[in-house]
Every structure is written in structure tokens, then in C-alpha cells.
Write a protein that binds this DNA or RNA. Structure first.
Length: 906
RNA sequence: GCCUUGGUGGUGAAAUGGUAGACACGAGGGACUUAAAAUCCCUUGGACCGAAAGGUCCGUGCGGGUUCGAUUCCCGCCCGGGGCACCA
């Protein structure tokens, strides 16, 4: 019978849907396993062949774990709020909800064709009010909490108020608290809330009309859209992620992620341990101490000037009247520059002298205070002590403005560049002289602390997350302004639904789109007009999957206690410093308040590589309509033109198809090589404009979903990025057909040892490989097994039936059909993974030389005491037992006494 | 610049420190077929020796090292992918 994948796949997809085969139910009697994919943003372009890569891998793992007896939770949903739908709405007036729903439907159709084992009853959409009720809930919880440094966790804000009223806290005395107005109280509490409103320098994108978080900006451009971003001081909602910096860092040691991803997060968190030091200043007759942060307290004897960030509050206070004009000019200049220009001009050094001087607290020396944009307002204290001899940035600055450079490490040459390395012996440094740099750092810290000049301090680069967006298509903030005081709407009024508006762009007055909503008020007071950013909805979606229909809690205690955390999370690295930080933060916050039972949400994380496109080119001879084959193009002057890859097979161009493709090519002529037109190719991003997009639907049409699944895995290691090239797909398709054909004359005979060996080798290999996420080698092993069985002429149920189960995670449709043909009811997903019997797979290679290509090598462990003579005797004896195979001859024996013997025989 | 990955045939790739290139694609040859498709078989890293069977040498980015033995481990370079980038 023919392998008719079309009807098979349709049939079993319908079966899984109607039988709810993959519905997950809490069952404390079974071990759980939670496999999660990063849910997609449903874009208008639909899925291309690269998107399902991770989903296929996670699906294989889910199905495998299920065969292993686990109760598997494998959900899917949509990250449905976001900019593209809104931008589209602004252009067309189409409501983002309609676009989003259409896109979701399209995604669902495409996903369904691939045969995933998702429990669709648990689907979530971040734009669904029933879902974002819990996003708003979490926000209100954060609003209603503060970070208690003593307990090192988030606590209800009521505990802080209690402190204020009774003992006082952090400079707020009971008297001060009692006499404060409501507005003042609100302002004080704002300084502590986990979700708070505060003025800060933000990334403002004028084209998008919204602020963006740090991870949404790359090289001064918005990640979405690529528009310039500028720095601007604004009052925004923020999340106090920085309070969790240390825990986010420490938590990395407890989870199984790749080193590179953990490293990325560590860099993003950017812990640095140093010293805060106070420098007194002379500014006319005023005293104005500057606090600076340094990791190199040892270099304090090398300080020759100070630098303030242009945005620093100290600038105004330390500028002398004589310098004021120049400083103001400089500040204007800095302000005008966009973030992008600042980055582009990284090498140009700018700055201005403030007119004031600082006193080095260790030497008493007087050094000038400068202002320069190379010092960042947002990090440390916005002021530095400059040590040009040992810091390359200070060095360039000093050279540019002719400031002195004083080396303080013995023997270093600072005539051309600074000496930044933390090594060598100190000199010119008073009591630090003669110490090694590392010792000197500690000694200087001790000295500074002992003399009250400063203290040890740990700084983090991780900033609080800007949480408001001046957009429409996001979660509304459940906050209204009662007499100007931000007030949460009551929990039982959630969700606060997004209002209908007629137009989606900002108002003429520059207010967010929500200002257009009629009656956007709560109890007569105005509601917050900005909405939450994209990461809000994706920060706790993995928790919601555990209990998606619960109206009373984000997740019930029972569901949380059972599913706990994600055992395997598969997704791209692009979320390393965004979603994966925010989610961990969000989870830790909920953990602090006792809503979830695990401190880390994602136990194991795998990053699937990107699938790139493989573009094809034709070469048109300049000023003609003649196209020359790639091998001959160097003989002519040609222009390279992208050609639709659907017109190309194995790099050979379909000439008629090409002529019909575009009117301008109707009368194209070709210069062929060996009768064929060979196209050039290149690896590029998969995109419509390069005509290299491959749609999984097309692959499903011509080869079937099982072939698609196998091929995506067969392409190479999961973590690696690789170009999609359809040309190898015939191989896996042939493999499926061959496997199918083995069942043509199924026999009930008992299997022979060599047949059992094939099976058990495969079981062992598959088990090992899947646990290591090495799916490509599993498929290879499967191909070898099928080839071996064909060579042995084996079509025995005893062998084939377990093989169907083994194949089912990879190619579930064909497996279901064969399982059914073998007389089983139900789904192969309910079978058990075959038991591995090592003895049956053992490599007694002398008896079955078939897989060794006529040559063999074996390695035997010998007792340490074995002498060369004994080794030789052993080898001869071994050769005796090899008599079945015919004439074997020892070719090479490598003996290391007491270790290993290597014998090559043929 | 710093961090992190990777570099193996025409291509995708495989190799607990132990026959480098499994498996697959492509290519070449052959079988079946009126023909095509499908299917099956053989060859396929390079150079050389041989009529053949078969054999020899060289080969995993480059240079060293450890080891009986290195694609694998160590040190130093070169090149590509990803991330961070005035973070004091």
C-alpha cells in the first residue's frame, strides 16, 4: 500500500483534536513535565519554515516524555499585544483586535498542519481581558509592595506604612509621616513601591510616539521599526527590577541554561564591586562634596581631574560664573544630539571645564572638574574621578584637553596609551607603594572606609524597567488619578478593559491614544492614559497556562504546587535581556508574596538557532535580457538578481517558470552550461523581498508534516543557526517511505538476535540522544536501523512494533497510522517507550561484522599487570572466538601496559 | 575593545581521547522500464602505486604542547556568527 501522507495526516490530526489526546490534567499520582515554547507574536506574514523549528523540538521532547510515563503539560498561546498591529491600525484604521484575530487564526491553521501535541484548551492570548486581568492584578500587587532590604524580599506596602507610623524608617519619622498630606504620603510611598511612577531619563522614540525599555533599543534605534531614539527626562511608570539585581544574578547558578545566555544576563545585570568616595570641592566660597564610584580605589593617587555627566545635578552647582556661558553652550550641544549620534561619535571627545576644583581626599591635591558626555548620568553617581594613566577613556580625554597623566604602576608606559590592566606594583601612591594592584585595591578600600572618606559599594548596570508606553494596543493601567494622586482601582473591578477609540494615533496635543476614549474615567476621576509594554503580558504567561480558566487567581495553589515550573523552555536568544529577565523578576516577585512556589520559572532553557533563508540569483548580462548560468558569469558583465526560490530546484532554474514569473522576463534568453541554468546562492535573512521565504504549508502539501518535522530536525544541531535548503528533504521523505514499506509483509515470526540488536541499539541511541537534544543523530540512527532491517529482510512485528513507538515523537502521523494497522486502538501517544536491554544491543562486534564495513577495531580493558606477552596471548585467544566471521587477520595491535589494547582486525 | 559561540568533503553534517567524514543531499555509473516517475545497486576527501585484488602518503582554520594515540584536552594566533559597548 502507498504511503498516503495527506489522508493519514488529516485523519490523525482530526482524531487528536476530537479525542483531546493531549489534554493535560493535574494528577498528583503521576510525575509532571512542563515543556514550554516561547509563544509567538502573530504577525501578518504568517509562519515561515524557521518558526516551527523550536516547536518541533519541544513537541518531540513532550511526546517522548509522555511515552516515558510523565504527565506532560505542553501549551501554546499568543503574545498578541504589540506594535505591528497598532502601526497597521494607524495606517488603515483597521482595529488591531481584528488584525490580531485574523493573524491568530492563520497561525493556528499553520500550526495545526504540523501535528503538534499542544493542549489547546489551555491557549492564552495576552490581549484577552480574561488574561490581562491577571497582568493588571500583578501590576497592582507590585504597586502595593515595596522591597524590604532587611528581609531581602518584596513585602506589602502596609508593612512600610506601619514602620513610618511607629518607629519611622529611612528618614521618615512618625511625626513627619503623620503631618504629611495625602499627596506627600503618596510621593513618599512612590519612592519604595515595586511598581512606581518616577521621573527618569527615558528612551523616547518620536516616530513611534512612545518611550521604550533599554532592551527595545539597539544602537540608538528602536528594535521595532528602526526609528531614532532620544534621551528625555519624563515621568513614567517603572518596575523596580534593580532591587532584584543580586537575586537575578545568584539565581543563574541554580538553573540549567547555556553559559552564553547566562553570561549575557550577567553582563546585563552588570554587577561591579567598588568604592564610593567623597571629594570636597572649591567653588567660589561654597563647599559642595562630589560622591564618585570607582572599582579602582587603588588609583586614587593618579587622579588628575574629575568629570561630571552633563545631566548631573552638580553641574549647575559647580559651574563658576566665568565658565557659565561655555558650560551652557556645551549642555545645549549635548541635549541636541540623539542617542544614535552619541553612539556614532563614540570616538570624538567633547567636554568643558566647569571652573571648579576638587580636593583629592588622600593627597589633598587640587584637581579641575570637567563636564563630559562620556560620563553617564544613569550609572553610579554620575561623576567620576579620572585616572588617565590607567583608564583608556580618561586617557583620551586628558590627551584631548591637555590634562596631566600620572602613572602609578611601576614600569608602565603611558606615552601612547593608558595601562588598564589590573597588574603590577604600585608607585607614586603614598602608603600603597610597593603593593600589588589587587592588594592595593583592598588596602585603598580599607583606608577609605577607616578614614570616613567613603564606603564599599556594589553597583549594578541593571536599571528599573520603564513600564509605560504611549500606545493603544496594550494592557491599560488599573490606575486612576484622584486629586492627582495615583490610585489603584479595586481588585474586584479588574479587568479594566481597553476602551474603543476611533483613531489609534496620539492626539494633536501629544497625549497617548487613550486620551481619545470617551469617558476614560473611574468614578469620575481620570484614568491613566498610557498602556503597559509588550513584556507585561509575556512575563507570567507560563503560570497562566497552569490554570488558564481560573477566575479567582492567576494560578490556583493546587495547580502551582503540581506544575511548579517549566522543566524545558525552548526559544530564541533574542529574549536574553528582555523577556527572560522580566519573567524571572516577575516570578521572584510573586514568589516573595507567596503566590508561586518556585523562585526560578525556567529550569532548563534551550536556544534554538535561527533558520536563515537561502536565496538564489540569476545573472543578467548588462543592458540585455540574456541570463548567464552561474558558472559562466565571470565571462560577462552581469547584474545579480534575486529569483524566487520556488522557480529553482537544486540550484537549477526552471526556465519556463522564470519567463512566466515577471512580464519583463517573458522574452528572456539564457546561456546555459551543460544544458542547464545554474543559479548562484547566498545565505540571507528569510524575507519576502529576497524571494527566499519557504512556507511550511507548501512543504506539508508536497511532502507531508512528518517529513517536514523530520527534516527540520535532520538539518543539524538544534542550537545552531543554519540556512533552510529544501534540497535534502527527499532523503527523510524516502526514509519514511522505506519504513512504511517494511510493513508490507508483516510477519509474526520470532526475531533473530541480529534483528533484536538493531532494535535495541536504536532504543539506546534514541533515549540518549533525545535527553541530549541531539535530534539529528537520532534520525540518522533511525535511518541506519531501517537500512539494516531491509538488508536483513526483517519485517517482524516484534521489531517493527516498538519501532513505531520510537518514531512517534518525530513523525507522529505515520506512527499513528502504523500503530493502528498493527491492530492497536487508541493513540500511539499512550504507548510506553520500549525498554532498552543493553545486552541485546551489545557490541560483540566479532559476531556481527555487518555494520563494520569489513574492518573492525575493538578496545578491551586489560588488568594493569598484563605484560606484552599476556596481551598477545589474549589477542590470539580473541581471534579464536572470531572464527565465525571467516578469515580475520590482526593488522595492528597497540598496547599500553596496564591500560588499553587496541586491536585492528580485518 | 570585552564576553560568548563556531571553523571537518561539492553541500547539511557525525565522531565517551581510539579506523576522521557515520547518516543524508548532490554528482557519476548501472539495474528495472517502450519511456518517464518511483524503486534498487555501485562509486564519490585529496594525491599516488597497481592489470586487478589491494596498497601507500597527506588531510578536521594556522602554529606549538600534553599523550602510545588529538577533530576532541592545554597555550598562542587567524577568520566567521551572536551579545555588550563610553558602566568608571
Amino acid at each position: 500500500m502507498e504511503y498516503d501522507f495527506k489522508s493519514i495526516e488529516k485523519k490523525w490530526q482530526a482524531y487528536w483534536a476530537s479525542q483531546k489526546t493531549f489534554k493535560a490534567v493535574v494528577d498528583e499520582s503521576k510525575p509532571k513535565f512542563y515543556v514550554l515554547d516561547m509563544f509567538p507574536y502573530p504577525s501578518g506574514a504568517g509562519l515561515h519554515v524557521g518558526h516551527p523549528l523550536g516547536y518541533i523540538a519541544s513537541d518531540i521532547f513532550s511526546r517522548y516524555k509522555r511515552l516515558k510515563g510523565f504527565n506532560v503539560l505542553h501549551p501554546m498561546g499568543y503574545d498578541a499585544f504589540g506594535l505591528p498591529a497598532e502601526q497597521y491600525a494607524i495606517q488603515t484604521g483597521q482595529h488591531p483586535e481584528i488584525t490580531t484575530t485574523n493573524n491568530i487564526n492563520r497561525y493556528r491553521q499553520q500550526l495545526d498542519r504540523i501535528g503538534f501535541s499542544f493542549d489547546w484548551d489551555r491557549e492564552v492570548r495576552t490581549c484577552d481581558p480574561k488574561y490581562y486581568k491577571w497582568t493588571q492584578w500583578a501590576f497592582l500587587k507590585m504597586f502595593d509592595s515595596w522591597y524590604d532590604p532587611a528581609k531581602d524580599k518584596a513585602r506589602p506596602i502596609s508593612e512600610l506604612i506601619e514602620k513610618f507610623t511607629t518607629t519611622g524608617y529611612d528618614g521618615v519619622t512618625p511625626e513627619k509621616w503623620a503631618s504629611a498630606s495625602d499627596k506627600e504620603k503618596s510621593d513618599i510611598l512612590m519612592r519604595y513601591r515595586i511598581a512606581y511612577q518616577g521621573e527618569t531619563a527615558v528612551n523616547w522614540c518620536p516616530q513611534l510616539g512612545t518611550v521604550l525599555a533599554n532592551d527595545e533599543v539597539k544602537e540608538g534605534l528602536s528594535v521595532r521599526g528602526g526609528y531614532p531614539v532620544e534621551q528625555k527626562k519624563m515621568t513614567q511608570w517603572q518596575l523596580r527590577v534593580s532591587a532584584y539585581a543580586e537575586r537575578l544574578l545568584k539565581g543563574l547558578d541554580t538553573i540549567d541554561w547555556t553559559d552564553s545566555l547566562k553570561e549575557m544576563q550577567r553582563n546585563w545585570i552588570g554587577k561591579s564591586e567598588g568604592t564610593e568616595m567623597v571629594f570636597n570641592t572649591i567653588c567660589g566660597d561654597r563647599q559642595m562634596p562630589i560622591t564618585i564610584f570607582t572599582t579602582r580605589a587603588d588609583t586614587v593617587f593618579g587622579v588628575t581631574f574629575m568629570v561630571l555627566a552633563p545631566e548631573s545635578d552638580l553641574v549647575e552647582k559647580l559651574t563658576t560664573p566665568e565658565q557659565k556661558a561655555k558650560v551652557d553652550e556645551y549642555l545645549q550641544y549635548v541635549k541636541k544630539k540623539t542617542e544614535r549620534e552619541r553612539i556614532a561619535e563614540t570616538r570624538t571627545v567633547t567636554g568643558v571645564f566647569s571652573g571648579s576644583y576638587a580636593i583629592n581626599p588622600l593627597t589633598g591635591e587640587k584637581v579641575p572638574i570637567w563636564i563630559s558626555e562620556y560620563v553617564l548620568a544613569g550609572y553610579g553617581t554620575g561623576a567620576i574621578m579620572a585616572v588617565p594613566a590607567h583608564d583608556s577613556r580618561d586617557y583620551v580625554f586628558a590627551k584631548t584637553f591637555g590634562l596631566p597623566i600620572v602613572p602609578i604602576i611601576e614600569g608602565c608606559d603611558v606615552s601612547e596609551e593608558s595601562f588598564d590592566a589590573k597588574e603590577g606594583k604600585m608607585c607614586n601612591s603614598g602608603f600603597l607603594n610597593g603593593l600589588d594592584v589587587k592588594e592595593a585595591i583592598e588596602a585603598a578600600k580599607d583606608y577609605v572606609e577607616a578614614h570616613g572618606l567613603g564606603r564599599r559599594k556594589t553597583n549594578y548596570r541593571l536599571r528599573d524597567a520603564i513600564f509605560s508606553r504611549q500606545r493603544y494596543w496594550g494592557e491599560p493601567f488599573p490606575i486612576y488619578y484622584k486629586d492627582g494622586i495615583p490610585t489603584p482601582i479595586p481588585m474586584d473591578k479588574l479587568p479594566l478593559e481597553l476602551p474603543e477609540i476611533s483613531e489609534f494615533k496620539p492626539t494633536e496635543a501629544g497625549e497617548p491614544p487613550l486620551a481619545r476614549a470617551k469617558d476614560w474615567t473611574f468614578e469620575g476621576y481620570p484614568l491613566e492614559k498610557s498602556t503597559m509594554p509588550g513584556f507585561a503580558g509575556s512575563s507570567a504567561y507560563y503560570l497562566r497556562y497552569m490554570d488558564p480558566d481560573n477566575d479567582n487567581a492567576l494560578v490556583s495553589e493546587r495547580a502551582d504546587k503540581y506544575w511548579r515550573d517549566v522543566d524545558l523552555y525552548i526559544g530564541g536568544t533574542e529574549h536574553a535581556t528582555g523577556h527572560l529577565i522580566y519573567s524571572r523578576f516577575w516570578n521572584k516577585f510573586l514568589y516573595d508574596l507567596g503566590y508561586v512556589c518556585e523562585a526560578e520559572p525556567f529550569k532548563k532553557l534551550i536556544n534554538q538557532g535561527m533558520i536563515q533563508g537561502r536565496s538564489n540569483f540569476v545573472y543578467r548580462i548588462v543592458n540585455t535580457n540574456t541570463f548567464v548560468s552561474a558558472g559562466l558569469k565571470d565571462q560577462y558583465q552581469t547584474t545579480e538578481i534575486h529569483v524566487d526560490i520556488n522557480l529553482v530546484r537544486n540550484d537549477k532554474l526552471d526556465l519556463d517558470g522564470f519567463k512566466a514569473w515577471r512580464p519583463e522576463f517573458n522574452d528572456a534568453e539564457f546561456i546555459l552550461e551543460n544544458g542547464e541554468y545554474i543559479c548562484g546562492w547566498a545565505v540571507e535573512k528569510m524575507s519576502k523581498s529576497m524571494f527566499n521565504v519557504v512556507n511550511p504549508d507548501d512543504i506539508c502539501d508536497t511532502y507531508g508534516a512528518d517529513t517536514l518535522r523530520l527534516y527540520e530536525m535532520f538539518l543539524g544541531p538544534l542550537e545552531q543557526s543554519k540556512p533552510w535548503d529544501t534540497k535534502g528533504i527527499d532523503g527523510v521523505n524516502r526514509f519514511l517511505k522505506r519504513f512504511w514499506r517494511l510493513f508490507d509483509n508483516l510477519s509474526e515470526e520470532k526475531a533473530k538476535p541480529e534483528e533484536l540488536k538493531v532494535l535495541h541499539k536504536l532504543i539506546g541511541k534514541e533515549q540518549e540522544d533525545i535527553e541530549n537534544f541531539s535530534f539529528n543523530t537520532t534520525i540518522s540512527a533511525f535511518m541506519i536501523a531501517v537500512n539494516d532491517l531491509m538488508a536483513l529482510g526483517c519485517s517482524k512485528r516484534e521489531i517493527l512494533e516498538p519501532m513505531v513507538v520510537l518514531l512517534s515523537p518525530f513523525a507522529p502521523h505515520i506512527a499513528e497510522e502504523l500503530w493502528h494497522m498493527l491492530g492497536h486502538g487508541g493513540s500511539v501517544a499512550d504507548a510506553s517507550f520500549p525498554e532498552f536491554i543493553p545486552a541485546l544491543a551489545a557490541e560483540d562486534n566479532v559476531i556481527y561484522p555487518v555494520q563494520f564495513n569489513g574492518k573492525m577495531r575493538f578496545t578491551v580493558e586489560l588488568p594493569k599487570s598484563a605484560s606484552p606477552a599476556e596481551v598477545e596471548a589474549f589477542v590470539r585467544g580473541y581471534q579464536q572466538t572470531a572464527k565465525y566471521v571467516g578469515d580475520l587477520k590482526i593488522v595492528k595491535v597497540i598496547v599500553v601496559p596496564g591500560k588499553i589494547v587496541n586491536v585492528v582486525i580485518k
